[in-house]
Design a protein around this nucleic acid. Structure first.
Lengths: 203, 203
DNA sequence: GTCTATACGTTGATAGAC
DNA sequence: GTCTATCAACGTATAGAC
């Protein structure tokens, strides 16, 4: 049969990433078939292989797109001079904002690390480490200028990231609390956890 | 061919749960086949259906076993009178100890919630909520007796649980830090996050 | 770039012998 | 309770026409 004339490759490419992300988030990478993705995009399964070598590379592309977006946005967020407390607060608010508004991307990025084979894992894990280092640097600065009290910047960074990213396990938009309020609570907890006191958020 | 004589059903049943857990942790529920499990156990695929109605019920059994163990151990840990600070510290140390020594169970319990169908999900989620409520109660007590400063016990409980459970994403036994030290660091961060100060853990 | 058609392995689950 | 044998459905990926 004839091919679909007038089809735009870039549109298809974007649709593949978008629908893959959505399906992976809903059912998990292992469960989703190339057929399902093709159906959602509106092409035949074989057409996906025009854009990605195989299913594994499709997953890598999805995760890599997310990590690049995160690193770029976080770099923009961290520019400008500020104290270590301000930097930590800014980081915490940024992280929550970015993650809370992208539940699918975040979910897939954390859940499907295990589905990555060696090469893709190294790529994504490298970018994740780069992001973690941003927070670790802030903590180290706060320790050396005496603002924060903590024993181990690396462990504290990991703990804080787990705590912040955890919002996504319970937050649903339109819930009891505004996004602003959630940011406030988490920021206050993060500052407390590193041994810094806010004047008083409890009133 | 003849059946394997002298086989003990209870031994097989335990082996199925044990090997399923291990395989689910390593490869993910969706990826693991009944054949793989049967191979590890040393039986034929059909034999598993003597113990579990289908693959889904096998997953439910694995997760339910974990949740029952967690709830039982946590109930034992929380008995006896103590202040709210002591209760929180005891909870934090318990949670880390329990989770850090059972990486597979914890990993599967968090990752495969999505693989549960309605009925099984309700069962497991109910037990998870029950566990969360233990921490929430401790926080509420600490707020009402003026020991903790926090705005929302529910959100704080979720944040603390994310932080504590997060140890499992980076901790590997035999690493740089002793388990005791890790407990100390996390406990100190938890107490800080709820607005309570330790004398000085930084020396 | 997209299509149809298809190769070919693997899946969950069942039937019936022992 | 375990075995062998088997089924129908579905998986990824490729080949070659248009």
């Amino acid at each position: 049969m004839a091919r679909k004339t007038g089809a735009d490759g870039r549109v298809t490419a974007e649709a593949i990433l978008r629908e893959s992300l959505s399906l992976f988030a809903q059912y998990g990478f292992a469960t989703v078939s190339m057929r399902q993705i093709a159906d959602k995009v509106g092409v035949q399964p074989g057409a996906i292989y025009q854009h990605h070598r195989n299913k594994q590379q499709l997953l890598v592309a999805v995760l890599d797109t997310h990590m690049d977006g995160l690193l770029k946005a976080s770099a923009e967020n961290q520019q400008g001079d500020c104290t270590s407390v301000q930097a930590l607060e800014r980081f915490a608010r940024f992280h929550i904002q970015y993650h809370i508004t992208r539940p699918d991307e975040v979910f897939v990025s954390y859940m499907e690390l295990r589905s990555l084979e060696e090469e893709g894992y190294a790529l994504i894990e490298g970018k994740r480490r780069k992001y973690e280092r941003i927070l670790k640097s802030i903590l180290e600065r706060g320790v050396s200028d005496g603002t924060f009290q903590l024993d181990d910047p690396h462990v504290s960074a990991m703990a804080i990231l787990s705590m912040l990213t955890g919002v996504n396990t319970w937050y649903r938009s339109g819930g009891r609390l505004s996004q602003q309020k959630i940011e406030d609570i988490y920021t206050s907890m993060v500052l407390g956890a590193v041994g810094h006191r806010l004047p008083d958020t409890h009133s």
